[in-house]
Structures are given as structure tokens and as C-alpha cells.
């Protein structure tokens, strides 16, 4: 593989894995919410909010992918001639958000689905349910931060 190809593999993993995580997470909450809304259609709005939470990891992955594309010149005018070590540097920079995005989105989905159960009984406690789910978000944000700092630190 050329350096450029390795860098693009990094972009693909960031977008792909974080996206898979979000799809699974949002999927779990969606099922749980559909169960609740079958019995109680008024809770649609509240459950939608909870369902959206595990979706952010996919966005973080896409953002990281974009930065890689922009830095290597896929987006823009000139395509960089990357050496193989430079390519690996981009791949490694993508790993934090790829892995943490994948897993944190799934776990956030589980917490959000539990929060769906919470608002089934206590709709007024939606805020607390969201707080629990957002705690998981912290680690996705930290991973995104690490990936971005790594990307901008690569001297090409």
C-alpha cells in the first residue's frame, strides 16, 4: 500500500466503525422506544431525544474522516505524496475515535434504552435519563479530541 492508501484506510475506519457503533446504539434505543410508544404514543418526543444521543459518535467519526481527507488533499486541490510512515501516522490518529466511537455508541444505546424504561414510569425524570446517557458521551468526545490533536500534529 502507498502512504496515501494507508491514510485513507484511517479515514474509512473512523467513519465506518464509529458509524456502525452509532447505528447499533440508535437501533437499540429505537426498538425500546417503539415498545413504549406502542402503549403510550404521547412519549414519542421524549424517546426521540434519547434515541438521538448514541448518534453523535457517527458524526465524530465522519468529522475525523473529513479532516484526514482534507489534510491529504482528497478534498482540495493538490493530492499529497505521502510516505508509508506518514500514511501510518494518519491511520493511527484515526484509531481513538474509531474504537471508542464503536463501543461507546453501543453502550450509550444501552443506557438510553434503559432511560426509555425510566420515562415510561416517570416522564418528568427525562433529564436524569439524559444525564446518564451523556456520561458515556464524555469518552467519545475525549477520543475525538485525541484524534483531532493527532491529525493536526502530523507534520506533512
Amino acid at each position: 500500500m502507498t502512504g496515501l492508501e494507508i491514510a485513507l484506510l484511517g479515514a474509512a475506519l473512523a467513519v465506518g466503525l464509529a458509524g456502525i457503533g452509532s447505528a447499533i446504539g440508535v437501533g437499540i434505543v429505537g426498538q425500546s422506544a417503539a415498545g413504549l410508544v406502542t402503549e403510550d404514543p404521547d412519549k414519542f418526543g421524549q424517546t426521540l431525544l434519547l434515541q438521538a444521543l448514541p448518534g453523535t459518535q457517527g458524526i465524530y467519526g465522519l468529522l475525523t474522516g473529513f479532516i484526514i481527507m482534507q489534510r491529504v488533499g482528497i478534498i482540495g486541490e493538490t493530492l499529497l505524496e505521502l510516505t508509508v510512515p506518514e500514511g501510518y501516522a494518519f491511520l493511527m490518529a484515526a484509531i481513538p475515535i474509531a474504537l471508542v466511537g464503536l463501543l461507546s455508541a453501543i453502550y450509550q444505546g444501552r443506557v438510553s434504552a434503559s432511560a426509555v424504561g425510566l420515562i415510561a414510569k416517570r416522564p418528568e425524570e427525562l433529564g436524569k435519563g439524559i444525564v446518564y446517557a451523556v456520561m458515556v458521551e464524555t469518552y467519545a468526545v475525549l477520543a475525538l479530541l485525541a484524534s483531532i490533536m493527532l491529525l493536526f500534529g502530523i507534520p506533512v
Binding site: Q31, S32, A34, G35, T38, G109, R110, A113, A120, K121
Partner: peptide, 16 residues
Amino acid sequence: DTAYAYAVGRIRALEA
């Protein structure tokens, strides 16, 4: 276990 997500969501509403 997440295959039960729909069922449990529905049970939660019924339990109430």
C-alpha cells in the same frame, strides 16, 4: 439480550 429491547420497552409502559 438487546433483542428484548422492544419487548422490555413495552413491558415498562404496561408495568406502569
